[in-house]
């Protein structure tokens, strides 16, 4: 039987790349993604006895919830609602950059829901379970997030659909 440390290290080696992608999509910032993933892995090491049978599920949950928690602490410094929904400058021809910019102006929960639904490919029920909210809230939050993306970046309509 593997020791806890060896199993943890194996897990980190095998899953860091995938978890890094998720962390980056959740935060939109390489440094924040690094902090977020390190925090999640630290928590995993801390509670390894409990979660060693399914560490990835635990780490992902921490990523999702910690990101929202961090955002709450940061949000007072963010832009006011008056400018929040203003369309992003459409000068960039790079669609990816535009989507990244637009994602960065969503709330953490909206962004997290989109990542869960369209990157992790979770169903509404699965996303709801991961975030500890109802499936209906996931549904309405997804719709609100897509609607805000349309407002923020109208040029993304072909990507996310032109109508709600």
């Amino acid at each position: 039987m593997q020791s806890g440390e060896a199993a943890f290290n194996d897990f980190v080696a095998a899953r860091t790349a995938a978890l890094s992608r998720t962390a980056y999509l959740l935060t939109g910032d390489h440094h924040l993604a690094e902090d977020l993933l390190q925090t999640a892995l630290l928590q995993a090491a801390r509670h390894w006895e409990r979660i060693h049978t399914a560490p990835e599920a635990y780490v992902r949950r921490v990523l999702y919830n910690q990101n929202v928690s961090w955002w709450r602490r940061r949000k007072l410094r963010e832009t006011t609602l008056g400018t929040y929904d203003a369309a992003a400058p459409a000068s960039s021809p790079d669609l990816r950059l535009t989507l990244e910019e637009a994602l960065g102006r969503l709330t953490a929960k909206q962004r997290t829901v989109l990542v869960l639904r369209y990157f992790e490919d979770l169903t509404e029920v699965q996303a709801a379970a991961a975030l500890g909210i109802s499936a209906g809230t996931v549904k309405s939050m997804t719709r609100q997030a897509l609607a805000r993306l349309r407002v923020l970046a109208p040029e993304l309509s072909e990507l996310i659909g032109a109508t709600p």
Binding site: T22, L25, H30, R96, L99, V115
Partner: peptide, 12 residues
């Protein structure tokens, strides 16, 4: 598009 953005993220 999200997958492409994710693929561009450097591993932590």
């Amino acid at each position: 598009e999200l997958a492409r953005i994710g693929d561009g993220a450097a591993p932590v």
